[in-house]
Design a protein around this nucleic acid. Structure first.
Lengths: 247, 247
DNA sequence: CGGCGACTTGAACAAGCTCAAAGTATGTGG
DNA sequence: CCACATACTTTGAGCTTGTTCAAGTCGCCG
């Protein structure tokens, strides 16, 4: 924010700015040439503001665009017929949102902002056109999709753990790691999501999540104050992720 | 096998046969033209035989090809550093294997045949080349990737259920549905995977899976004899998937 | 037919869930 | 700016479910 205010550049120019975006390597444009970057920028609606609680799309919405979280965090949730909700993923800056619609060209999830946020919106039809002509973008797209799949898989691996503390420790580890990739403080940060969201994400109940946080705090692994978490020992956290009874 | 022996066609011709493949709509070639189909067929090594227990790739293997299960079933498993294994998916005929490598161009899972099987092997580099020139294939690829993502998400939704019987019921439902898409008997079938695999997949312990099967059988929802399952009431199965105490 | 691996069943225990209440932020209106 | 109301979080106590440990059964392949 303040770094941006320092830029004395025309606002209209700032609007289109994949080249200077702080997300850089993390986003789609990674590793495509300058001329091609320009073609991509032309189709992207960047920095759309989203309010807390606002939805980018709902279940059944035709897949019209992919989104990249730029500032702020999002969650995507599936709703099964029987009214059961399951959070499928959290999306921090640089992470793609909307890939759930690729199969049927309609979204199977809904995506909601967890806080005030901004997104870049990439119209899907146009993305396909440009990607067909820019091999680098095509490959980049595959890479980004692949990373999203990796996250789904580590989500499954998290839920496969039998003990609550393991799941919570892995969760904190994952969030911390993603903050690190963003060059943000990753030993102390504020969780953008509620305990209820964490519980749902991990297949636990809210009280169990709370108790797991408290347990990790008692054991000196982390400090917790509401959404603010500080990791006191990365090694201890990793150990807690492996074994229910930690040292 | 026997159906194949009946075919009095030149073997060399049978080797290349996306056009006549029974998987049809389910596989990559869906919805691309005949001329383009030919280009795809040229790069595919079809009907490679795989023995039970044989691996298509392991963790760290460079992504050289994508695979489509043709006959028989596969499982893919992640192995975390701490030696914890988690089954990420089962792959029945027509389903793609190897997408886990898209992000880093190295596999993060290992893929193993659960029984005698055959696969079609699609070299990834060549697939990208052809896809870049055949827009229909590009879109088809996205679709197939999207379906794989949907499966990952329903896996997560399964694991999010708190009660074992719900998870097992959803699992049976999913397998049955996939058999139906293959035009196979879907009310009575043989599970290709062991109880241990099911347990791992669902985040349960083998005994709990066994008990859940027994419970569903007691309640008249299914019949079980080892790997052979018969669904006696689809409605009851759906109910069991929603509520731990079923009717 | 024997032996081994896969599956089932039983009993005791422990982990997580439910219900309940108290404590802590958060935001709004006076 | 404070007071109050609301939503979120933590903690406690008891219960249910799934896990663990152990034994027994089934079925398959050599």
């Amino acid at each position: 924010m303040s770094a941006e205010a320092a830029n004395v550049i025309d606002l209209g120019q700032v609007r289109r700015s994949c080249a200077q975006c702080s997300l850089g390597q993390l986003c789609l444009p990674a590793a495509i040439g300058a001329g091609e970057m320009d073609r991509l920028e032309r189709i992207v609606r960047s920095r759309r503001a989203v309010q807390r609680g606002e939805r980018l799309f709902g279940v059944g919405t035709p897949l019209s665009a992919l989104y990249v979280a730029r500032e702020g965090a999002f969650k995507t949730t599936t709703l099964s017929e029987d009214g059961n909700a399951q959070i499928i993923g959290f999306h921090l800056p640089g992470e793609l949102i909307g890939l759930d619609g690729l199969g049927s060209e309609r979204h199977r999830c809904e995506a909601e902002a967890l806080e005030r946020a901004t997104v870049c919106e990439v119209p899907y039809a146009q993305l396909q056109l440009v990607a067909a002509q820019v091999p680098g973008l095509q490959r980049g797209l595959m890479r980004v999709i692949g990373r999203s799949t990796e996250q789904d898989h580590s989500h499954v691996a998290m839920m496969g753990r039998k003990h609550a503390v393991e799941r919570v420790a892995l969760f904190l580890h994952s969030i911390s790691e993603r903050f690190r990739l963003l060059d943000r403080p990753h030993d102390a940060f504020a969780l953008p999501m509620s305990r209820e969201d964490i519980a749902n994400f991990l297949g636990l109940v809210i009280e169990t999540v709370s108790r797991s946080f408290s347990k990790l705090a008692e054991d000196g692994v982390i400090e917790v104050r509401g959404k603010n978490v500080r990791i006191r020992s990365r090694e201890a956290l990793d150990r807690a992720a492996d074994h229910p009874a930690l040292a």
